[in-house]
């Protein structure tokens, strides 16, 4: 009788866990679909095209990302810039304030293959900034972190397995001796 009650409780528990897993999966996929409709992820890449009007003001520019996809962006008055020259001096401005300077800076980036990050919505750029994290020195730290975490975790797990194996071998030997007596 008691065993039947326990079995039913276990079945109900397992069913609930399975149901919760399926539900979590469905909710996360739905939420992702909703969020993908609302946000455009930032584009990282190099400038491959700059278009200006007769007055030399920037009107459009194109960026190629790491997969080779070309993204074209239009500009509006509020577009913000944060771009560095080769010496590392940063120029911070908006399109309304210096529309011609923006075109010059982006052409400079195109010639140097200097990567930039663009945030946008429906093809209109909100911010065009230097991809600071793209610098080699900064990247090495992240690469080292992945390398260190990977091997530390594997090493710790193999040590754990080795220790567990030794404990079990001793336990088996002890129990065999005890049963022989």
């Amino acid at each position: 009788m008691m065993s039947n009650v326990t079995n039913t409780a276990i079945r109900v528990g397992a069913f609930r866990i399975a149901l919760a897993l399926i539900l979590a999966l469905a909710v996360s996929v739905s939420l992702t679909q909703i969020s993908s409709a609302e946000h455009t992820p930032p584009v990282n890449g190099i400038v491959v095209g700059v278009e200006t009007d007769d007055a030399g003001a920037l009107t459009r520019f194109a960026v190629s990302d790491s997969t080779g996809t070309i993204h074209t962006f239009t500009i509006f008055k509020g577009t913000e810039y944060g771009l560095e020259n080769q010496a590392g001096d940063r120029w911070v401005s908006t399109h309304e304030a210096e529309p011609s300077e923006a075109a010059r800076r982006l052409r400079d980036h195109r010639e140097r293959f200097a990567p930039i990050t663009v945030t946008s919505e429906n093809g209109t750029a909100f911010s065009v900034v230097e991809r600071e994290e793209g610098k080699l020195e900064a990247n090495l730290g992240y690469l080292f972190a992945v390398f260190a975490v990977t091997w530390a975790l594997f090493f710790a797990y193999v040590l754990y397995l080795g220790r567990k194996q030794r404990v079990l071998q001793h336990e088996i030997a002890r129990l065999k001796v005890a049963s022989d007596k």
Binding site: I46, S66, P115, E133, G134, L136, L140, Y142, L143
Partner: peptide
């Protein structure tokens, strides 16, 4: 890798 630099090597892990 041209665009991402050294950090792209994380791909191989």
């Amino acid at each position: 890798e041209t665009n991402q630099g050294a950090v792209q090597r994380i791909l191989y892990f």
